[in-house]
Design a protein around this nucleic acid. Structure first.
Lengths: 109, 109
DNA sequence: CGGTTACGTAACCGTCAAGATACACACGGC
DNA sequence: GCCGTGTGTATCTTGACGGTTACGTAACCG
């Protein structure tokens, strides 16, 4: 469940996600999109699977990969929260208070 | 500019961002929040700086770190786009088309 | 059944990143 | 001009990660 940020830290994995956002793909299809050899892609898919970003459905020998709906919500939510807290900080009053606190802290040091 | 995802892949760096979302902090203040030694934190801050996530203001010897407004927009936007594409894929019609394409692809194989 | 296809895993290697220690540099106080 | 404070950098070591090759396994096809 956790590890979404780590899973998305790799450019190849992000590209995989982008492709899977457009259409479902088998592992072979995904591998064909990159220069990386199949085992490497397979491991990337495993990381994304473990992170809950994608899921695989077995169809005969093939594994059809697709995105898990809401998998990226965690990331989006985190960004929103950070932005919201920081936005509040940017209020004129808060900024003034921070400046005062900083000055006081400096007087102590 | 790029490398935002990579910068946020480390839990310590995410924690730093969370703290900085609440208040501006000097490098020493940040280091005091973690077990990691100061040089390590310094490097984490450098990664965040290079990624454009945070910025530092020199105040005497101290460097006051704060978040860069809109630094996480890139990430949030990416998530939104992926979700939007995938959301379209989830439409009943598209799903049906995909199923047909998959079946056709299988007939070929 | 044998052969092919599709996929994953194991083992190995090179590289990079994160941690700690030691050092260097800037600034303020005396 | 010295000393303490506050940071950043250099260097090293170690552990994780990405990539490859070789192998194992499950499913269709004749």
């Amino acid at each position: 469940m956790s590890g979404t940020f780590e899973a998305l830290s790799d450019p190849t994995r992000r590209a995989i996600v982008e492709h899977l956002a457009r259409e479902e793909l088998t592992a072979g299809d995904v591998a064909a999109l990159f220069d990386t050899a199949r085992p490497g892609i397979s491991r990337h898919l495993r990381v994304l699977r473990d992170a809950g970003v994608v899921e695989a459905e077995a169809v005969a020998q093939r594994r059809v990969y697709r995105l898990v709906p809401g998998a990226l919500d965690e990331v989006e939510q985190w960004c929103r929260e950070v932005r919201s807290f920081w936005g509040r900080r940017l209020d004129a009053l808060d900024t003034e208070i921070a400046r005062g606190a900083r000055a006081r802290r400096q007087d102590e040091g």
